[in-house]
């Protein structure tokens, strides 16, 4: 997924080849991860796409089906992966993910501990941030889930950056081999306060911990536990509002004969033909999307106290 040698780098001169992982983009809310194979086909509502037609085209190309329908072929990114991965658990989304990565002060070379692995949505972004020389050790107590995550990291080419372990971190803590070595620790557990004492032993001094909990009671209990070994304990909620943009025909009051049509939207397809007739009243308007996520979880961050 991320380029670790220049031949894999995204570029004009890099063409899709057999075995590449692609994100097939139909619409912003309809994407799919596909591994290219010489004999493969993709079938969707637009028709049948032959992989062999894709090979040799640059990433970012528009490709057509037997019926003339089209999709775009994109190189995978952590953000796109989050939208297409198979949900084995509730996953973290971009607003939380990007904030976590920055607030945990993760830079290339860092050693990061995570539990649980879940569906690996955050893990993918953690891996991007520690690359090329750091490592993410992620733990889940669910054996199959860990195995599926491992397969995913294999598929996305991250297995040299991520190690998945099966372990009950709440019950037994992180493995001793990480004592005092972790730059950052991320917890997404039902009872994070049980894992905090272990996390504090793993962190370097001044290292940052983050705990994600959907419920305020969990955050409250975590904060109480954090206050003994940690400082700078802060809890946040982060959300993303998205906007829809349209070019509309807002008619003036004086010209409005019927009164029933106050807002006429001008669809993209019509714009070129009849949109310009009323050029003076064409307005680009933005409004928040009607539906949005109202809550994901509370993010509690804390720094290990310096005692040396």
């Amino acid at each position: 997924m991320f380029p670790f040698d220049s031949s894999k780098k995204l570029s004009f001169s890099r063409y899709i080849s057999d075995g590449d992982l692609l994100i097939v983009y139909e619409r912003h809310d309809n994407m799919k991860a596909v591994k290219v194979s010489e004999s493969g086909v993709l079938q969707n509502r637009f028709g049948v796409f032959k992989h062999s037609d894709w090979i040799g085209k640059p990433f970012g190309s528009k490709v057509f089906s037997n019926k003339g329908g089209f999709v775009y072929l994109l190189a995978p990114t952590a953000e796109l992966w989050t939208l297409v991965l198979s949900h084995r658990t509730q996953i973290l989304y971009i607003a939380d993910i990007s904030f976590i990565v920055m607030y945990l002060e993760i830079v290339p070379g860092c050693l990061v501990l995570e539990s649980g692995t879940g569906s690996g949505s955050l893990t993918t972004s953690l891996a991007r941030a520690i690359a090329p020389s750091g490592h993410v050790y992620t733990f889940d107590f669910h054996e199959q889930r860990a195995a599926s995550a491992r397969e995913d990291f294999e598929r996305t080419g991250l297995s040299n950056l991520v190690t998945v372990g099966v372990r009950d971190i709440q019950g037994v803590g992180f493995p001793d081999e990480f004592l005092g070595r972790a730059d950052s620790v991320f917890l997404d557990l039902p009872q994070p306060w049980l894992a905090i004492p272990s996390a504090s032993k793993m962190l370097k001094q001044d290292g940052v911990l983050c705990s994600f909990s959907p419920c305020i009671e969990q955050a409250q209990k975590s904060c109480e536990t954090l206050r003994s070994d940690f400082t700078d304990v802060r809890t946040f909620e982060v959300l993303l509002h998205t906007y829809e943009v349209r070019e509309g025909n807002l008619r003036s009051w004086q010209d409005n004969d019927g009164g029933s049509m106050s807002l006429k939207s001008c669809k993209k397809r019509q714009r070129s033909t009849k949109g310009l007739e009323n050029a003076s009243s064409l307005t680009i308007m933005a409004r928040r999307n009607g539906e949005s996520r109202g809550h994901t979880g509370y993010l509690t961050f804390a720094r290990l106290k310096c005692t040396l």
């Binding site: 983009y25 912003h28 775009y72 994109l74 607003a95 904030f99 305020i216 955050a219 409250q220 904060c223 109480e224 304990v233 802060r234 809890t235 946040f236 909620e237 982060v238 959300l239 993303l240 509002h241 998205t242 906007y243 943009v245 933005a286 509370y298 509690t300």
Partner: peptide, 20 residues
């Protein structure tokens, strides 16, 4: 493609016993 306008929203909490 994939065009989107987003506006992040960030709220901090005071989390203290009985005073959250």
């Amino acid at each position: 493609i994939g065009l989107q306008i987003s506006e992040p929203w960030l709220r901090e909490y005071q989390v203290l016993p009985s005073r959250t």
